Simulated assay, not measured.
Amino acid sequence: MPALVSKSLRDYRRSLIRWTIGIGAFFTLYLSIYPNISENKEIYGAQALAKYPGALRDLMGGMEDFTSGIGYLSSVVYQLFGPMLFVVCAMLLGNRAIAQPEEAGTLELTVTLPIDRRRLVFERFVALALGLLAVAAATFLLVWVLSAVSDMGVPADRILAAHTGVFLLGLFFGVLALTVGAATGRKGAAMAVVGVVAVGGYIVETMGKNVDWISWLRWISPFHYYLDGRPLHQGFPVGDYLVLAGATAVLLITAILAFDRRDVGV
């Protein structure tokens, strides 16, 4: 493993452990109450949830039957809160790649080392991807075990498909933060861009299904390529995930070129 990747992962170690524990605690909390929810069809069943306002149901992905394993995982775990936790985790890791050390004044020392700038950005990306993958792998195993213990009846391959989507979505936003940081050297700018794209993209994807004048924007929302394929119901949406991966690759190339041409003060 390249030295810069190893060093970056060591630097991220405590943060990755905290995020794994935090996301794991979230999943544990919500999955542990599923047995109680599944027994209350009059409150959490499809007919009861249909009484909620349409806009609220749209924002929550339609609010499927919470008493079914797939419906509960889809609406509560993988619709909004789980993905957003991964997005924030990836954004912070992406900021630590370029923008944060540049603002702290430590990036200048790294740039003076005998390492090509393009390689520096790429290896920071590799560290980001590996770190996020570790969090995703650990939390996938947790969800798989807890869903089996709670007798949710969701196949492991469907959970893997949904978790893969969460990882790819998080990686996209992590690289978006890295790209903005590589272009500007400002972590505040990176956080602002990620926040706008994440919140706006989610609203457009969920509300755009029933609001005609914004429906066309769904195609440029990263959440569309995570949610539209319904991985818990239909398995791996290969085409959608390839779009997410391709968009991430384009952002990475942009980050490499932007950082290579920018004055970092050395």
Results as ranks from 00 to 15, higher is better:
P2H: 09
A3S: 11
A3F: 06
A3T: 14
L4F: 04
S6Y: 14
S8E: 02
S8C: 12
R14E: 09
R14H: 12
I17L: 09
T20D: 08
G24F: 01
F27Q: 06
Y30R: 13
S32F: 15
Y34G: 08
Y34N: 04
S38L: 13
E42W: 03
A50L: 13
Y52H: 09
P53T: 13
R57N: 11
I70C: 11
V76D: 03
Y78H: 11
Q79W: 04
L80K: 09
P83Y: 01
M84Y: 15
G94S: 11
N95T: 08
N95D: 14
I98H: 01
Q100R: 14
Q100W: 00
Q100T: 15
P101H: 03
P101I: 06
T110D: 01
I115Q: 06
I115C: 08
R119M: 08
F122D: 05
L128M: 12
L130D: 10
V135D: 01
A138V: 15
F140V: 07
F140N: 00
V145N: 13
S147V: 11
D151Y: 12
D151M: 13
D151P: 10
V154N: 13
P155Y: 03
P155E: 03
P155H: 05
P155D: 05
A162P: 06
H163N: 08
F167S: 04
G170T: 00
L171D: 07
F172S: 01
F172D: 04
G174Q: 09
L178G: 01
L178M: 12
L178I: 06
T179D: 00
V180Q: 00
G185E: 06
G185M: 00
R186D: 02
A189Q: 08
M191E: 14
V194P: 12
G195A: 07
V196C: 10
A198L: 14
V199P: 07
Y202C: 09
Y202D: 10
G208C: 00
K209G: 12
K209F: 06
W213C: 00
L217M: 07
L217A: 00
R218D: 11
S221H: 06
D228I: 02
P231D: 07
F236C: 02
D240G: 07
D240S: 14
L242Y: 01
L242M: 12
L242N: 04
V243S: 07
A245W: 03
T248F: 01
L251I: 09
L252A: 08
A255K: 01
I256Y: 04
I256D: 02
L257F: 08
A258I: 11
F259L: 07
F259E: 01
R262N: 03
R262E: 05
R262V: 04
V264F: 08
